[in-house]
Amino acid sequence: MVVSEETARPAWWRRPPAVVAVIVLILGTELILGWSSLAGAVHQLRTPAWNWVAGAVVAEIASMGTYARMQRALLRGAGTSVPIRKHVALAYAAHSLSATLPGGPVFSTAFNFRTLRRYGASSAVASWCIALSGVLSAGALVVIGAVFGILTRSTGSWRTLVLYMAGALLVAFLVRLLAQHPQWLITPSRGLLSGVNKVRRRPADSGHARLAGFVDQLRSVRVRPADFGFAVVLAVANWLLDALCLWMCCIAVGAEGIHPAQLVIAYCAGMAAASVPIVPGGLGVVDGALVLGLVAGGLTSASALAAVVLYRLISFGFIIGTGWLVWLIMRARAGAPRGVPA
């Protein structure tokens, strides 16, 4: 079959020059329409209250520290103790991988797993710790959004809050229950593995022995209730400290016309937008959601834009830059030859 040149050429609106022209037109229109807000935001960013900026940086560092301590509590509860400085370094490095690379969550999870294995955790404990920390973090954000939504009377009711809390606890309980009874996963996992082996043209029982070994390791995972409860508290504190950073950024640029509860609602909307990995770091998506939320909460467009830019400079620029530096140090130490202190 011969395809003519006219048929093979894409439509004019699919050609790169046309796409670029449309993008430039949209950005130019937005720039013209929002020029006054942008100019006001730039003016506010030139003269921030530096004491509040310093407080925002401290709050963001504390937020990262609570996430590291949450993961440490889960790992310690499973019987593996690692110094907190290593957990903090892992939190920074893994967060940077997740936020900046295309498909970052996959690279971040793999890096997290390999590092926990190097710290002495078994494959099962490392996998369980990563899965449960993600569940607790997501559940904490949902509960925080529900609580402050009720406080502002913008959504839901106390019944909705109880439902959200019950759902989050149920998911965490199921993860813990599967860790205690991993044999429930053997049959479906073997069936899935056999199907994958068939597609890859390998023997049907390939990998079954490793799967059985992993299940045996998972049976030894037992987390003390006190460590689990402490991890839940830290998961909530992680989000609230990050929201505190945003609030301090608002004050730093002179935007004080928003109630803390409304700010947290705007923050939760921005973090929910960040969960959709359209672009690395949620650039543009998270910023837009935060600005819209802050404006809906009572701030002017200029003040909201200035506060979000400052917040992103700290939470994305400073934290991600630090994380990549930590990742380079960890990579160098992991590759150090024997006999050299790592």
Score class of each variant (00 low, 15 high):
Gly213Lys: 10
Val236Ile: 11
Arg153Gly: 04
Ala307Thr: 01
Arg224Gly: 14
Gly167Met: 02
Ala73Gln: 13
Gly339Lys: 01
Ile26Arg: 11
Arg114Gly: 07
Ala212Trp: 10
Met165Phe: 12
Ala307Glu: 13
Phe173His: 15
Val199Gly: 04
Thr152Phe: 08
Met165Leu: 14
Ala252Met: 08
Leu90Met: 06
Asn112His: 02
Asn112Tyr: 05
Ser157Leu: 09
Trp50Leu: 15
Ile23Cys: 09
Val106His: 04
Ile144Ser: 04
Asp227Gly: 01
Ala93Gln: 12
Val3Trp: 00
Gly207Met: 03
Val175Leu: 14
Ala168His: 03
Ala91Ile: 04
Leu101Lys: 01
Gln262Trp: 08
Cys129Lys: 04
Ala91Lys: 01
Arg176Pro: 03
Gly335Pro: 04
Leu178Ala: 13
Leu310Pro: 07
Thr160Trp: 11
Arg190Val: 12
Val53Ile: 10
Ala49Asn: 10
Pro260Trp: 08
Leu192Asn: 13
Arg14His: 06
Phe148Gln: 08
Trp50Glu: 14
Ser127Phe: 07
Val125His: 01
Ser81Cys: 05
Arg117Lys: 14
Ala304Ser: 09
Pro277Asp: 05
Ala179Asn: 14
Leu74Cys: 12
Cys250Thr: 01
Pro260Gly: 03
Val196Ala: 10
Val286Asp: 05
Ala243Phe: 03
Val285Glu: 07
Phe107Leu: 10
Thr66Asn: 06
Glu60Ala: 06
